[in-house]
């Protein structure tokens, strides 16, 4: 489904990713682990198409298409979803209005009919209760006044509504206490499906105790330095990033 080949990415004139190779198949969950500054978020943003993240070499093939040639919204229509590490607050835009617009734009992009207000509310309420969210939050402007955990749950809510083919979770565990982490992980696990792939980007192993990956890639200094099964994450937890000869200022 996703094939990243020799990907070099430059941000502000500086190369951050130096030739990444990564293949992700339908139904699989892969973890990308790495210390701060290793290029994890750059990888997430370049998959979602953020401006200023320039591919200088290599390619990203998603369902046979050149992802890099597509605008962020086209990627969303094609089924790419990025759960942000730092979800953006948007004062003045009501959460419900945003969710409805996003869902209907993605549905249009997939060639499906738009949902009317009643259908949308019914679907939204189902998903909100699955994630144990307070529905009143969605009447507020997007993410404004939300706690860290509420913001992350809101990201997972968006993912569950938009039903992407490929979900990229960028440090979804950061800033969460253990209860919030469990709820978010349950939300993610409930979305695992044979038709969907996930790329879980994280610094720490703890999220991977809840979202068990099929494969783990270790990213350091803008390169994949090791790959393995889920046991690699445990080994990393025990020995630290030093086992790959890198220092991690946050560890």
């Amino acid at each position: 489904m996703l094939e990243i080949k020799n990907l070099h990415v430059t941000v502000g004139g500086k190369e951050i990713l130096h030739g990444i190779n990564l293949t992700l198949d339908e139904g699989q969950v892969h973890a990308v682990m790495g210390p701060n500054g290793s290029g994890k978020s750059t990888l997430a943003y370049v998959l979602a198409g953020r401006e200023g993240y320039d591919v200088t070499e290599g390619e990203i093939v998603f369902d046979g298409k050149d992802l890099n040639a597509m605008a962020p919204e086209e990627r969303a229509h094609a089924g790419v979803f990025l759960a942000f590490q730092y979800p953006v607050e948007i004062p003045g835009v009501s959460g419900l209005n945003f969710l409805k617009s996003a869902l209907n734009e993605v549905r249009k992009g997939r060639g499906e009919s738009e949902l009317d207000a009643v259908e949308f509310l019914k679907l939204m309420r189902e998903r909100v209760s699955e994630l144990k969210m307070d529905e009143a939050l969605l009447k507020r402007p997007v993410n404004v006044g939300f706690s860290g955990g509420e913001k992350k749950r809101n990201e997972i809510l968006q993912m569950s509504l938009l039903e992407p083919r490929l979900a990229v979770l960028d440090e979804t565990d950061s800033g969460l206490d253990i209860d919030a982490l469990r709820i978010v992980a349950e939300g993610v696990n409930s979305l695992r499906s044979p038709k969907r792939a996930m790329l879980v980007i994280t610094h720490y192993q703890r999220l991977l105790s809840y979202i068990v990956p099929d494969k783990v890639h270790i990213l350091a200094g803008g390169k994949i330095v090791a790959e393995g099964g889920k046991e690699l994450a445990l080994e990393l937890e025990e020995k630290g990033y030093a086992m790959f000869g890198v220092t991690d200022e946050a560890a």
Binding site: P72, E73, A76, L82, F98, V106, Q158, L162
Partner: peptide, 9 residues
Amino acid sequence: FFLRSRGLP
């Protein structure tokens, strides 16, 4: 970018 990444043109 956030809005576009959610499919809004």
